[in-house]
Design a binder for these strands. Structure first.
Length: 272
DNA sequence: GCTCAGGTGGTTC
DNA sequence: GAACCACCTGAG
């Protein structure tokens, strides 16, 4: 077991912030996450979070996955003190971190996310994993499924995916899986590219436009200059920033600010 | 019935 | 370039 301080680290906030769809509260203060073929159970307490894994696995995987080596106080201190809205949003979501997730998972996840909502996205990913992923068991004997790799998804037909209620996104998933499985798209090569080049490359995939490419750049490649503009961000930009959020001011951490705003617009003042 | 949900791709001007 | 519009599905 590993203990992590909750300073600028809130699993419940990360869970609700919509960057990871395989993290769930499965009991009171108990959260479970699967990433690639890995599984982790956590107990969230007031001051700290207990990770149910060994030190080796924590150091080798989860520490980086949750971006625990980064001081988010630095990002918070860069917020314009005159920007009351961003200050409020950042305070509300100050436990959010930008996860370092797998590129392939994020490609599929954010293709599915379009014109959808968090519960439905989770449902689609669970369905895909159960059908095309591998069955595994947790140390406590609970069954979970790994995220399907490109080869497995490339074997699926559009009709199969439509049968799983993916709708028009089925065609995108098939096309993207085939490009990745055939080697026509080299996903591992993306990590060596700068943000603009990676974004452009990702947009060659069917179903990946600018917004989805930015989500992949932010949540997998950890390009903090990526600033995904979706319906929430656009709404806030129009109503609070006269049409455009000053993301140039936040070079190197714009994506962090995007998450604060997104989360505040999604969850603030409603079920917070 | 209608609108909307973390959009994309195609058509048209 | 910018402004439409079709596209699956499920919830309010």
């Amino acid at each position: 077991m590993i203990t992590v301080d909750n300073k600028h680290f809130s699993i419940p906030q990360i869970c609700r912030s919509g960057q990871c769809f395989r993290l769930d509260e499965t009991g009171k203060g108990v959260y479970e996450v699967t990433a690639l073929d890995k599984y982790l159970k956590m107990d969230v307490q007031a001051e700290r979070t207990i990770f149910h894994c060994g030190e080796e696995e924590f150091e080798a995987f989860w520490k980086s996955y949750f971006d625990l080596e980064t001081d988010y106080g630095e990002y918070l201190s860069r917020i314009d003190p005159k920007d009351e809205y961003l200050k409020k949003a950042a305070e509300f979501g100050s436990g959010i971190r930008i996860l370092r997730q797998d590129v392939w998972e994020m490609v599929i996840t954010f293709i599915l996310s379009q014109q959808s909502n968090i519960p439905r996205i989770k449902k689609m990913i669970s369905a895909l994993s159960e059908r095309y992923g591998e069955k595994r068991e947790t140390p406590e004997g609970k069954v979970y499924y790994t995220f399907p790799d490109a080869d497995s998804l490339a074997g699926a037909t559009e009709e199969e995916l439509r049968g799983m209620k993916l709708g028009y996104r089925s065609r995108y998933i098939c096309g993207t899986a085939q490009m990745a499985a055939s080697g026509q798209m080299d996903l591992s090569g993306l990590s060596r590219m700068e943000y603009p080049e990676a974004r452009e490359e990702l947009m060659k995939l069917p179903g990946v436009g600018g917004k989805v490419a930015d989500c992949i750049c932010l949540f997998a490649l950890h390009h903090l200059d990526a600033f995904p503009v979706d319906t929430h961000i656009k709404k806030v930009a129009d109503s609070r920033y006269g049409g455009g959020f000053p993301f140039e001011r936040y070079r190197g951490c714009a994506g962090v600010m995007q998450q604060y705003i997104f989360y505040y617009d999604l969850k603030g003042e409603t079920d917070g």
